[in-house]
Every structure is written in C-alpha cells, then in structure tokens.
Design a protein around this nucleic acid. Structure first.
Length: 643
RNA sequence: GCCGGGUUAGCUCAGUCGGUAGAGCGCUUCUCUUGUAAAGAAGUGGUCGUCGGUUCGAUUCCGACACCCGGCUCCA
C-alpha cells in the first residue's frame, strides 16, 4: 500500500505506507535529513522515526525554525528531568514545556535548588547527551500509565485529567523513554539525546503547581537550548544586550531617576535630567491632546472612600488600594487608584446636552496602587505613577466613529515615539458582566472594525474583557523585538450606571452616555522605562535631556563656548558646556557615554573663524570648522519634535 | 503574597573560618592648557540596610523587618 505525501512546493510523492519521516527527508536530500528534527503530516508534528500511515500535506521540520527549536527544547527539558531524577533521590517532576527561547521543568526535591545543584544537573545532562540515548515513543493505556507513574503524584494527576496538552488524550497516552527514564509526553522528540548540541541552564525559581498559589510550591529550572553553539551564544548575547538596556541600570547611569528605599517600594524620584525627559513627554502629550479635541482637567490624589464605593472599586479592587485614612471624625479617605470617578464628577457638575458629546476629559493623573510586594519592577511596575488618562463620554451612536479616531490618534502617538510595529488584542465579554447584550455586541464589533480599518493585526481574547466593557490593548515591538503592552482603549457600560450619568438628547429625553477609558502611553513612568530600553538610553534628539555638549579645548575657549551655548539656547536647544578640568578626549568620552546626540568642540581656530567641530551621534567622523549658523540650522532641524 | 538569592564608599564590586574593612570608577585639590572615546599626582569618602539576640567582642552567626534581584501568582 502506498501513501501520497504533498510537499510544501505542491509536488506529490508516493511512498510505502509505514515509511518514516526520516526516510522521506533522506530521500529529498542528505543535508535536509541531517537538519531534520521532526516532520509535520497534515498539521500534526511527528517524530522522525514515526511510521507514516496515511498521506497528506508533508513538511520536514528543521532545527533552524521556531518549530524545530521547540522540539530541541522539549527534548532538552526531558534530559534535564532525567538528570534531576538521577541525581536527587525521591525527586518528583511535574511539567516541562518548551517556551520562547528556552524551556523549563518543575520539580519537587523537598528543598530548593542552589547554584551548585544546577551545575551538577548540567554536567549530568552533558553525560546523557554524550551517551546519545534514543528517544522512544510508546502508546499506553491510562491504566498502564498510572502504573508507570505510581510514585509520581503530579504525573498521576495529569494522567487522571487526561490533559490533552501532555499526553495523547482520550483512551491512551504517549510516553517517551530513553534508557531507564520515562516521561509522559505528546512529543515529538529528537531521535536521540546526542542531537542536543547547545544547552545551558539559566536559573531556578519557585513556581506553583498548576500555577495555583494555594497548591504546592515547586522548584522550576529554566534553561535554553539551540541548534548550535553559535545560536546559543547569539542568544546569550541578546540577553546581555537586554541587560545593557535595562532601564534601571541606564536610569542610574544617565542620572534620570532613582528609588530611594526611604520612600518605600515602587516609588520613584525624578532627577533633573529624568524630570526634563518626563516634562518633554508630558508636554507632547498635553499638546497633542489639546489639538485632538480633548479638554485638560486636574483632580486631587485622595477622595472619600464613599466615592470608591459608588464606583465599585472598593468592592472589586480593595486589596490593590492603599488603606484608608480617617479624617474629620468619621470620614474615610483613600488614595486614588484611578482617575475615572473624578472625571465622572466633572461630567456631572453640569447638566449635559448631546451637543457637548463626545466630551473628552484628559488628565496626566497620578494614581497609587498597592502592588503586591513581589511584583514591583523599576518604572515598569510601580506603586505610584501618572497615567495619560482620558475619559470620553459619548452617545452610543458615536461609539464606532469615536473608537476609530481614537485608534488613529493612539497609533500617531506611538509612531511619534519611534514605535512602528503594532499588535492588538480585543478582550470580549466575560462570564459576569454589566450592560445590555446588544450594547456589548455593538461595542465589540466597533472595536474590531476600528482595528480592521487601521490595518492592525489583532487577536480576540474571548472572555478577557472587564466586567464593565470590552477593550483593545495595543502592543508594540521594541528595537530588539520585545513586545510591550502600551495603550488600552476600554468601553465602559458600568460607571455611567453607577453614577447615574445622563445627558439631554435632541428629543429632550434623558439618555445614558457610554464611557471610554483610555491611556495611550499607559503610565508615564512605565513609558519612560520602555523608551529607555527601546533606545538603549540614546534618545532621539527631541527627547534628549541634553541635546548638545560643548567641549572647550582649553580654558581660554570657555568664553566662546558659552557664547555658542547661548546662541543655541536662544533657538530652544538644550545645551551644556563641559568646563571641567579634563582633556578633550575625556570630555568627549563623557558626552558620548551620557548618550548626548551632539558634541561641539571649540578651540583656537573656531574662536577665530566663528565655527565649531561637530561630532554627531551615529556619524563616523567629526566635521571640523563648521560655521555657527550652519550648526544652528542643522541641530534645530534635528531637534524638532514630531508635532 | 509565595519560593530562592542579595544589601559593604556616590557607583560597580572584593573581603573578614567573629577581633570594626579594600580596589576600580567618581568626587576634591594641585600640576598640565589640552583638537575628537580615559593626562599625572595627592587626597576625600563606610554606624558593612535597620532593629533585636548569641558572644568578652558581631559587618561576619541567629531572628524579625525594610529594600533590591530572579521567578510564581496578581495587574481595575
């Protein structure tokens, strides 16, 4: 009996039924066979050794693809589990998937791993790889599997749940064996452990069984595995690059901000250069909101607890709020975790007409959220931060148009800050929700349509919406490909209800408006953190706190340097004169390490000719003797804000 | 909040098997007056995170707390 395999190029090839994926790959080419780690038949990934029993779309999965690396990492996870079970008596193991750029496995060895343990595990893994043990797949019944893993409570639980993602599902499960190690696994795996060429364990950490904090705390070991030593090194270099970009490190080196322990966890102070950077960003934000139909408001940082009861925050998110303060006898006050109730009260301060809608209230509003102690992370997750927050009050009929222009505005802002790769999520109605079904339907459709018109790729996160409305989250990719969630556009049917918001319609009836909560940068703190990492601290000129450093060659050139600085300051450039008693080389080095976009060296010939030596970031050579007017023009142009 | 690791000079870090500490950079001063990524010299700088315990003696050992780091969980 023969089967027909359809290759990716559309060609059809006949093979004997039962032929292995490896044999097919070898028939195509020796190099392909060597690089193969698995095959895909009609969408299903199979081991190279697996007999192919039916025809269909066929593809060889090679080691340099994401899927191929996934197979490598999954096999590496198995070898790690094998090593741990070899080394630690009574060790139990839970799950060990491949993840982006690596893999992990969760264990219980009755104590945490220490760094020496990891080295030992890594050495044992190397021995297993050296032994080149074949991975062998077996199908077994649930009963057989339970007997096989009788000493393994986590495996037993998985088998009993017949978890489709772990075993084959249904009546039987698959296991993989190499030597005396056996693990429950769907596969596929490499043909043998010897195919692992570049594996490294990275760290261990606690993790809950099934991700549930009420269940066992397991010990997770993270590792990474690649198709070659070179690819592993490249990855490790990328990790180092990410570390070099870490906003906490750069924030310190560039003197932008700090987190004094005296203030408490998650609370930043902004140093002069960071304060300037923030102000530039905030000014941009106010400017663009004003030119896009928003009105700026300002609101306090605390309010009566009663307000948060009306808004529902105390019901749902009390544990995320700072505790109350008792003032004026019996009145409790709370720090604000959100700005919306304040903006709502501004809406309510007047009777509103449909003619005023959509009413867009904007504020750089500072909020305080009591983040759990283990989660604060520099500027990216702080306890006090400022949102570029707006609440839009609109008629339901305006929702579609409003969301669409809002999305345009959002993308404009993100592009202005140097992001040009976007992805979005639409989060739809959860199980418990407020508002009418048809209103939800319309809002979800409006969100989706806005994304389609803007041409953004998006995914639908079913049931992930807040109870009060659906939302769009916009993610960007940074300069080294990392994904960050920035903007959120959120429809709210709940708060207008809670606060009994009304407007007078054209027919002079009282109607309930719909609200949109939205933040584009999200939090200014977090946005700055992401910008620091995106630009590795080397901000575009318009954002640089210091746009030019003037370096006098000798003391006698300081006066001229100051004149040049004054001329630059007059056209709005931010300039410093480095008057320190250092050599020219040292001063230039300092300016460069501080990521100043332009360095202007002034010496005898410049004083004489009214020129400077101009060194721009990114240009290979400096330019000598450039006339002042030309420099001013050039820098002014470079420093122009996007709008 | 949970698990693990950590906290020594402004920064990055070494060190003390319990007898109160060191480097590089920075900073200050002096000399040099410099032309495109580190001139030379001399200084300065630490309640060894906080509080308690053990001890003749604690920066070192133990405990609690604070803060940081890596994960988990959470993220209106």
């Amino acid at each position: 009996m023969t089967i027909q395999l359809i290759f990716p190029d559309g060609s059809v090839h006949e093979h004997e039924s039962g032929v292995s994926g490896f044999e097919v790959a070898a028939g195509i080419g020796a190099r392909l066979a060597k690089a193969a780690v698995a095959v895909r038949l009609d969408g299903e990934l199979l081991d190279l050794s697996r007999p192919l029993l039916h025809g269909g779309a066929f593809e060889v999965v090679t080691e340099t693809t994401d899927e191929g690396r996934h197979v490598i990492r999954h096999s590496a996870a198995h070898v790690m589990a094998q090593a741990v079970l070899d080394l630690f008596d009574g060790a139990t193991f839970a799950i060990g998937p491949a993840i982006t750029d690596g893999f992990y496995y969760d264990f219980n060895i009755g104590r945490p791993f220490d760094p020496d343990d990891l080295e030992q595990v890594e050495r044992r893994m190397a021995e297993i790889v050296e032994a080149d043990q074949p991975f062998e797949r077996e199908a077994c019944s649930i009963e057989e599997a339970l007997a096989l893993f009788v000493d393994q409570p986590y495996k037993t639980e998985i088998i009993q749940a017949v978890d489709d993602s772990e075993g084959a599902g249904g009546e039987s499960v698959s296991v993989y064996r190499n030597e005396d190690f056996v693990d429950l696994c769907r596969g596929p795996h490499l043909p043998s452990t010897g195919r692992l060429k570049a594996v490294k364990l990275l760290r261990s950490a606690g993790a809950y069984w099934r991700g549930d904090e009420t269940r066992d705390q397991l010990q997770r070991i993270y590792g990474t595995a690649w198709e070659s030593k070179q690819a592993l090194d490249d990855y490790l270099n990328r990790l180092e690059e990410a570390e070099r970009r870490d906003h906490r490190r750069l924030g310190n080196e560039l003197d932008l901000f700090s987190f004094p322990p005296e203030l408490g966890s998650g609370l930043a102070v902004w140093h002069p250069k960071g304060g300037l950077l923030r102000t530039i960003i905030e000014d941009y934000s106010r400017r663009t909101h004003l030119s896009h139909g928003y009105e700026i408001v300002a609101t306090p940082h605390v309010a009566k607890a009663q307000l948060w009861e009306t808004s529902g925050h105390l019901d749902f998110y009390a544990e995320g709020m700072y505790p109350g303060m008792m003032l004026d006898e019996q009145t409790e006050y709370r720090m604000k975790p959100m700005n919306c109730p304040f903006h709502i009260l501004i809406f309510k301060s007047n009777g509103r007409s449909y003619r005023e809608l959509p009413l867009r209230l904007f504020e750089l509003g500072t909020v305080y959220r009591y983040e759990r102690s283990g989660v604060v992370h520099g500027l990216l997750r702080a306890r006090g931060f400022t949102q570029d927050d707006s609440h839009i009050f609109a008629m339901e009929s305006q929702l579609g148009d409003e969301l669409q222009s809002l999305l345009d505005f959002t993308l404009m802002v993100l592009r202005d800050f140097g992001f040009d790769e976007f992805e979005a999520d639409i989060s739809t109605r959860p199980e418990k929700y407020v508002g009418q079904d048809d209103a939800w339907d319309k809002a979800e459709a409006a969100l989706q349509q806005a994304l389609e018109i803007a041409g953004l790729p998006f995914e639908i996160a079913e049931g992930e919406g807040a109870f009060y409305g659906p939302k769009i989250d916009v993610h960007v990719r940074d300069a080294i490909g990392r994904r960050w969630q920035l903007s959120t556009l959120q429809v709210d049917f709940g708060q207008p209800e809670n606060f009994d918001l009304l407007y007078a319609s054209a027919e002079n009836t009282r109607e309930r408006p719909v609200m949109i909560h939205r933040a584009l940068m999200g939090s200014i703190e977090r946005f700055v953190g992401i910008l620091v990492e995106h630009y590795a601290g080397a901000f575009p000129v318009w954002l640089s706190p210091v746009q030019a450093t003037i370096v006098p060659v000798a003391d006698r050139h300081i006066g001229y340097g100051r004149e040049v600085a004054a001329a630059m300051g007059e056209i709005g450039l931010r300039v410093e004169v480095d008057e320190a008693d250092d050599t020219v080389g040292e001063k230039i080095r300092r300016a460069i390490t501080h990521k100043t976009p332009s360095v202007l060296v002034v010496g005898d010939s410049d004083v004489e000719g009214g020129t400077v030596g101009l060194r721009l970031r990114g240009e290979e050579h400096e330019r000598r003797g450039v006339g002042i007017t030309a420099v001013l023009d050039e820098l002014k142009q470079m420093a122009a804000a996007p709008r």
